[in-house]
């Protein structure tokens, strides 16, 4: 890394927000296949999250643990350490739904296999050594930082999504999504700051913003297509892209246009995730979430 430029260290001017995993658990026995009643498309949209996201979270937690030796800033280390546990708890919680979804007759295996192996093949270190290994770590951190931007946007969307309440989404599933969304908002700075600390190259950030956006959107649509083909509702007269538009309009899923519109936001020079608004709604949700609250009862 020959052309590294170093800027003068800037002092912290604000308190740190403690990032710590919460010991949540969810029970799915009573959750129907269409946990958003009569909304197969929106339900399958969130099923993609259950199936695809856990592997990415485990890989991201692994990348962060590999980055720890390069994090000299104690505050950022603390945040990274808390982040690792939050991500593995997200992965455990979403994976816990796989078996139940399969019991409803959905063949989840091809989606999980393709998404998992795709991400593992792309993001493993391919036997790289020395300088190339460190550079590939920086590349991967740039990917995770971009992905975390999208999860923070979707997390905030989930916290604000009154449409899901109005549609009477099953409360336990809604709690899983909102607890996850709130923690994504709560820790939205961490991966970005780790990337900036370890590498900070704008070119890397820009390349991976595009790759992450295309990869996430593509993975989501391909997986959704696979799940919709199996959905027993058989609304064959209505192509599912039209069903997506309807679900977006009813406030049940975020608009997929974020994969385009958030790129210039994320790539604005001087961007920092803390500029995305306050943590208030995330903090308030976590103080009402049945799962997050139950985690505190054992104290």
């Amino acid at each position: 890394m020959s052309r590294t430029t170093r800027s003068k260290p800037q002092p912290y001017v604000e308190e740190a927000h403690t990032i710590k995993p919460r010991n949540v658990s969810f029970q799915w026995e009573e959750v129907p296949l269409h946990y958003i009643p009569d909304e197969p498309l929106a339900t399958q949209f969130w099923n993609v999250m259950h199936l695809v996201i856990p592997i990415g979270e485990r890989l991201m937690a692994g990348a962060l643990s590999e980055a720890l030796p390069f994090i000299a800033d104690e505050r950022l280390r603390e945040e990274a350490i808390g982040f690792i546990g939050q991500e593995t708890m997200h992965a455990d919680s979403h994976e816990g739904y796989h078996e139940h979804l399969a019991a409803h007759g959905i063949d989840v295996e091809p989606v999980v296999r393709n998404a998992s192996l795709m991400l593992q093949k792309i993001l493993s270190d391919h036997g790289l050594k020395g300088r190339a290994k460190k550079e590939w770590l920086a590349e991967r951190l740039a990917f995770y930082a971009a992905a975390e931007h999208f999860t923070a946007v979707v997390g905030q969307w989930l916290l604000d999504a009154e449409g899901l309440d109005e549609a009477q989404m099953h409360p336990m599933m809604l709690d899983l999504l909102r607890w996850h969304g709130a923690e994504e908002v709560e820790h939205r700075d961490v991966l970005f700051d780790v990337f900036q600390h370890v590498d900070g190259s704008y070119a890397r950030r820009a390349r991976w913003a595009l790759l992450a956006s295309a990869g996430l959107l593509g993975t989501w649509l391909v997986s959704l297509n696979h799940l919709m083909a199996q959905d027993p509702s058989r609304r064959w007269w209505k192509p599912w892209p039209l069903q997506i538009a309807g679900a977006v309009r009813r406030g049940l899923v975020p608009s997929l246009t974020i994969f385009a519109t958030e790129i210039p936001v994320y790539l604005k020079p001087g961007f920092h995730p803390s500029s995305m608004g306050t943590l208030d709604s995330a903090i308030r949700y976590l103080a009402t979430s049945p799962a997050a609250r139950a985690a505190e009862q054992g104290a």
Binding site: T5, Y12, D73, L76, E135, W136, D193, Q196, R204
Partner: peptide, 19 residues
């Protein structure tokens, strides 16, 4: 991770102090 990639990538680590 090739020399070309390096030429296109300028690391600019951001450091903070004062914790």
């Amino acid at each position: 991770v090739s020399p070309l990639g390096r030429a296109l990538t300028r690391p600019r680590p951001v450091r903070r102090t004062g914790f």
